[in-house]
Amino acid sequence: MLKAIKITGWALTIILALLFTMSAFMKITLHETALAQASSFGIDAATYRFIGVIEIISLILFIIPRTGVLGTMLLVAYMGGAIVTHLQHQQPVAMAIAIETLLWVTAFLRFPELKQRLITARSL
């Protein structure tokens, strides 16, 4: 059972890594579609590129087991910002919420101590 949880956690990590890598790559390279979306949000190209760099650094921290919890918190904050930005501009948020949820599920599978600290009630 423990092995299955570990494998599932890493499989979900790979899926998230692919999603965040594609997203960051589009921002860093100033892909036409990404730049059009940024422009519609009032974000200039240099800022959007910087956001992509933050995204990739957070992802790297998430993937490395030793810094995974820190990376999780940074990606959760990043996705929270994305959700708020989409809401402010009346854009759909379902995909961002799904990614945020997948991120939490993955973090709880990979880092049981995180789940224990955040969810499990302790008696004093």
Rank of each mutant, 00 (worst) to 15 (best):
I51V: 02
H86A: 08
A82E: 00
Q116Y: 10
A36L: 02
L61P: 04
L18G: 11
G9F: 03
A96T: 06
V84F: 04
L2A: 13
P112Q: 14
A38H: 05
Y78A: 15
F108R: 05
T21E: 05
Q116F: 04
A11R: 07
A17Y: 01
F25S: 01
K27Q: 02
G68P: 10
Y78C: 14
L61R: 08
L35N: 03
T120W: 12
Q116M: 12
A45H: 10
D44Y: 14
A98L: 13
E55Q: 15
G42W: 01
F111H: 10
R49P: 00
L103S: 11
V53W: 00
L109E: 02
H86R: 13
I99D: 00
Y48M: 14
L124Y: 08
F20I: 03
T33A: 15
L59H: 10
A4I: 01
A11Q: 05
T8K: 13
I119A: 15
G9P: 09
L35D: 06
I5T: 09
V69T: 06
R110N: 05
L118M: 03
V93F: 02
W104I: 02
L2H: 14
I51Q: 06
E113C: 15
A38F: 03
R49Y: 03
T67N: 02
I63M: 04
V69C: 05
H31L: 15
W10L: 09
R110K: 14
I99W: 01
I15P: 08
A11W: 08
G9N: 09
L103R: 03
F20Q: 13
P112N: 07
L18Y: 12
I60G: 02
K3S: 11
T21W: 00
I57Y: 05
A17C: 10
Y48Q: 06
I60W: 06
A98K: 08
Q90T: 09
A24S: 15
A107Q: 06
L74P: 00
L102S: 06
K115P: 04
I97D: 03
R122A: 09
G52F: 00
I7G: 11
T120C: 12
